[in-house]
Each structure stands twice: as C-alpha cells, then as structure tokens.
Design a protein around this nucleic acid. Structure first.
Length: 267
DNA sequence: AGCTGGGCCTGAGCGC
DNA sequence: TGCGCTCAGGCCCAGC
C-alpha cells in the first residue's frame, strides 16, 4: 500500500528520469470504471516536465504552461519504463524514446492534469495536512487538531487532514510507538507530542529502507522496499508485543484492519 | 461543518 | 479442478 515512504521512493527514481523531458504522446484507458481515474490527460502531449515533487501520497510534476501533472498510486499503482502487460492503464511517450507506463491492477490510482494549485477535482489534496518531515508539521497545530476532533485517532490520521501521507501501515506503527490505542478519542498534548515524534521517526526510517513491500509495491526499477521485516504492529496480529510481550490484537476500525497492543496502547 | 459508513476494484487465498 | 466467497485498503461521497 503506497504511503508517504513508498511514494517518496518512487519520486526519487522518477525525478531524474522525467526532469526536462517532453511528453510526445499519451494514451490512457478509454473506458475507466472510476469516473475520476483520468482527468484531462489529453492536455499532456507537447508539455515539458520540470520535475517530480510530492505532497503526502500525491506525486506532483510541474509542467510548462502553468499546468501540473498529478499522479496517485492508489492501492496497486506502479510506474515502469518500456513495459507492457494486462495491467497497463496509461502510457506517456517521452522525447528520449522511452515510454513511461502506469500499471494499476485495482484501478484505484489516478492521473490528473490541472492548473497549478487548482485541486478542486482532488478534494483530499485540496484539504491535505502538513508534510510530516518538514517544518510545516507544527507541533502546536497538531496538538490543537487532535484536541478538537471527535474522531478516533487512527481514522483521523487516515483522513490526511492533520498530517499528510500516513496510511494504514504507518498509522499502526506510529500509534504503537506512541503507546496510543488506535480507537482513542482523547489524545492530549503529551500523547499528541509523542505521536508527532513517532510519525516522523517511523516515516523517516521507512524512507531510508525505500518503503514497505507487503505484496504489490514496486519502485520504478522493479525493486521492493526493505521495510516490511521491521514492522512491529501492522500485520503482526498474535505476535508478542516487542515492549511487553502481550499478544498483539486485531480489530476493524473505520473499515480498516488495525493491529495494536491491548496492554501498552492506552485508550 | 465534521464525522460515519458504504462504495469502487480485482487478485489472492480459502473452503468445499 | 474449479467455483464462489471474503478480504485487502487508497480516496470519494451521500447522509446524518
């Protein structure tokens, strides 16, 4: 499941390959089953890519003529060069002779071309919280946000509003690290500060290992991330908590599988 | 306005 | 063997 560390790993491989390239032609699935899967992709031929940036889980590539190319990997999205198979949903031909291919078995990924900064067609991006590994991620604002919401803390993190880029894996990891029960609706300043630190630590470590490959995630060069064997909570149901040896428990929260320690993660 | 729950999609894994 | 069912979770959205 591509979250911030996985998307950042893809960005680091795509940026040097795409910077300065001009898109000569574009093809995308003409009958997308999700209405917003492809948005204005027909504007791409002739556009020059200035670089590949990232906000949360969104890749954002500035183009010429004041446009931006927005790429989202969804669940199973991946970019490769010069490949072809049944899961290819879009192709961008480049002026260096190569073809950037977007593969996406489950079709949750998205490609959109928008006026720079105009994210009306992407509401999650429009309301995206601060970048966790930048100065934007202000502790006081995070404490205030957690104090104000009436949601359980994990679904709130997954909304992308208090902080950008945290998905199901790293939410479980960060909440375990901060000793907060994922269903807690009372996260005060002290625990919010611990969570703030845990989010940064968990994401930083995962980026160093080029993300978590549970099953599907692959980078542009086809390699897997190396973070899976370092997970302490996500997918570890039944295993002893590394802190207190209590068996980790699984619950469904906000429709998402959630693993936590029933002893040392407090409500 | 903020929150909740259901929906989209399809490969993998399971039981029969 | 193969069929049918359930599960997985990114974002979106209708309806409180």
């Amino acid at each position: 499941m591509p979250e911030l560390p996985e998307v950042e790993s893809v960005r680091r491989q795509l940026d040097p390959e795409l910077s300065g390239r001009t898109i000569t032609d574009a093809w995308w699935d003409p009958i997308p089953t999700l209405p917003r899967q492809f948005h204005q992709v027909g504007l791409l031929p002739g556009r020059k890519i200035q670089g590949v940036g990232r906000k949360g889980k969104f890749l954002i590539a500035p183009l010429d003529q004041g446009l931006e190319l927005i790429l989202h990997l969804g669940m199973t999205g991946a970019f490769r060069f010069d490949r072809d198979d049944d899961w290819v949903r879009a192709r961008l031909w480049l002026d260096d002779g190569r073809t950037l291919v977007f593969r996406d078995a489950r079709r949750f990924g998205r490609i959109a071309v928008v006026e720079a900064g105009d994210y009306g067609s992407l509401p999650t991006l429009a309301a995206l919280g601060p970048e966790p590994l930048s100065e934007e991620f202000d502790l006081r604002r995070f404490v205030a946000d957690l104090g104000r919401t009436r949601s359980a803390v994990k679904p709130y993190l997954l909304s992308q509003r208090p902080v950008a880029g945290v998905g199901n894996i790293y939410a479980d990891e960060a909440l375990w690290t901060a000793r907060i029960h994922p269903a807690s609706r009372r996260v005060g300043p002290t625990r919010a500060a611990a969570l703030h630190t845990a989010i940064r630590d968990v994401l930083s470590a995962a980026i160093e290992r080029e993300g978590t490959t549970f099953r599907d995630f692959q980078m542009v060069n086809g390699e897997s991330g190396r973070n899976a064997s370092f997970l302490v909570a996500y997918g570890q149901e039944g295993r002893p908590c590394p802190r207190c040896t209590t068996a980790l428990r699984r619950m469904v929260l906000g429709g998402r599988g959630t693993t936590y320690c029933p002893r040392c993660q407090r409500p």
